[in-house]
């Protein structure tokens, strides 16, 4: 929620990024304060998922200009694992399957790595088991998922739940959900959204990258940004998403070109 007194958690300033030499982000400006939920919307290829990956530090994306401050620190100078340990979390659109590694083993390794970095104690397998089972209840996940290989043979909805479970375990300050709603039926969407809502509070902030308004019925954003051709071309409140649902993206595009034309 918007809180006038809260500090900025993430400041993106004039961010440009390329992949394989092709410019995708062409000047993103975005400030997110603690406690806020921002939806980033746009058509396929607009650059919204690229923004998510650049923030997480994917090496395929080169930042060519601009700055990103996370809690006042230069985020772009950090390796992906350092960002994760500081509290940046990306829920993947397509979570990776790791056959051969039990989910419980992976979750505990990630949890303990981050805990150690934060100066806290590691949990042994038994302690962790109790801890993770509590979190799984909130996501209506079957405990069997602990014994299965990471994401292997999980349905789309199960993979997304597993992502939100990791978010719940790692307690990030910045949650970036990349198309978490894609491939979910309505029940799975509700469960995932409830999970996200339980873990968002005034000590963190959330970016929802999505194509559709549907997710925003369940996770209500404070701000909605529309990305086109690598820039944010419109920002509004949650009602903007509803307008996009009924009118599509074209009118903003047209409105934006008109404005640009006027300026020129």
């Amino acid at each position: 929620m918007i809180n006038q007194d809260s500090k900025p958690l993430l400041e993106v300033q004039g961010l440009h990024a390329t992949v394989n030499g092709v410019a995708i982000l062409k000047g993103i400006d975005l400030t997110i304060n603690y406690g806020e939920i921002h939806a980033i919307m746009g058509v396929n290829g607009s650059g919204k998922s690229t923004l998510a990956k650049v923030l997480a530090g994917h090496s395929a994306y080169q930042v060519t200009a601009g700055a990103v401050l996370f809690d006042g620190k230069d985020l772009l100078a950090l390796a992906p694992e350092e960002r994760a340990r500081m509290g940046v979390f990306l829920a993947f659109q397509y979570p990776i399957e790791i056959p051969g590694v039990a989910n419980s083993q992976f979750l505990r390794l990630a949890y303990n790595t981050v805990q150690t970095q934060r100066g806290k104690d590691e949990l042994d397998p038994l302690e962790f088991d109790d801890f993770v089972r509590e979190k799984m209840k909130l996501l209506e996940m079957n405990p069997d998922f602990l014994d299965r290989s990471v994401n292997e043979g999980f349905s789309g909805g199960e993979k997304k739940r597993n992502e939100i479970l990791q978010m719940a375990l790692l307690e990030p300050r910045l949650n970036i959900l990349d198309e978490t709603d894609s491939g979910l039926d309505i029940d799975a969407l509700r469960v995932v959204a409830n999970g996200v809502n339980q873990f968002t509070n005034n000590d963190n902030a959330t970016i929802l990258v999505t194509h559709y308004q549907r997710l925003l019925n369940y996770i209500v954003p404070d701000y909605v940004h529309v990305v086109e051709s690598g820039r944010i071309i419109k920002t509004g409140g949650k009602e903007l998403a509803l307008e996009l649902e009924t009118r599509g993206y074209d009118w903003i595009s047209a409105e934006n070109s008109a404005t640009e034309g006027a300026v020129l």
Binding site: A56, G57, H58, S59, A79, P80, E81, R83, A84, R85, F89, L90, F92, P95, I96, F106, L109, A110, T113, V114, Q117, Q166, L170
Partner: peptide, 9 residues
């Protein structure tokens, strides 16, 4: 990258 994004070196 997936594992690094979860904090692993």
């Amino acid at each position: 990258f997936y594992l690094k994004s979860r904090g692993l070196s």
